[in-house]
Amino acid sequence: MATLSDTELFLLVTMIKIAVVMFVLMTTVAYLSWLERKVVAHIQSRWGPYLVGPHGLLQPLADGVKFLFKEDIVPLEVDRVVYWLAPFLSFALAFLSIAVIPFGGTFTIQGRTFNFQITDVNVGLLFIFAVTSLGVYSIVLAGWSANSKYSFFGGLRSSAQMISYETAMGLAVVGTLMIAGTLSLRGIVDGQSGTWVIGTFNTYLPRWNIFVQPVGFFVYLTAAVAETNRIPFDLPEGEAEYSNMVTVSCLATLLFFGGWHGPLFGPGWLRMLLPIFWFCLKVFCFLFFYIWMRGTLPRFRYDQLMSFGWKFLLPLGLLNVLATSFVVAWLSA
């Protein structure tokens, strides 16, 4: 095999990483809709999709084909440019944030070390927040461009909800940041390897942030559900945004559940691939949790939703930041 130069190798590996991540993400998003229909159906004592393929496994494909042949209805008097721009924007942003998510340790090719991550940014967490903060536009523009006052109200409500819960979400992760001392997602995960040791006593609990930041985790999880417009906070549109769901689940795994850390065993290749398995398993648990919640909880009313976000989650997040900073300062003093 001819050896590649460093730049060529870097480009090749990056391209492969992007292709694999895109493929996995697209498939996950497609099959999340299947999973959601199946799980909700079983919760409600129904069968769910059953006709296309075994257990309806080919249903996402059938849906895709159906969407391709569907007539594109453009209502009268809509703002064409914005009408097309809004959904495009929401997809582009959803894919953009996945680029900085690390999903495993490192691997070595020809003596060069690569991360299991498309790109490692040292402000990775802020990058994700930046991308999600732009996601508001896709909703508000979609609502406005349809030139109907009802969709406009829906868009306004939805974006007000997203902005309100974004602040709580930002505050919720500050605690983990203070513990990790870095904004790099890889650095945050690296700080969660091993087990908690109190003095000389090994607790055999994994060193995940969830055990020291339960309040932060609660605020993050609740705000993330609202941010992605899922039940019980889904009143603005009642539709699911699967790829954003994947992003917030990945982030929850990275920040609070130790990312790809888990028990390692077996031969070398297994040790390399197991972290990715642990990461995917944790993300899957979060995704299942989302769907489970949809099958269980009723919907909030809009004013309840706003007062919950501003009067409960936000103060709770602030208190968490305050308490964490005192403890961190006390421990480091």
Binding site: L126, F127, A130, V131, S133, L134, V140, S159
Partner: peptide
């Protein structure tokens, strides 16, 4: 750069659009 996107593009301009 990130603050610019979060605060300027993601918050201030949302106010304008609103």
């Amino acid at each position: 750069a990130v603050i610019q996107v979060i605060v300027y593009a993601g918050a201030i301009m949302v106010l304008f659009v609103f």
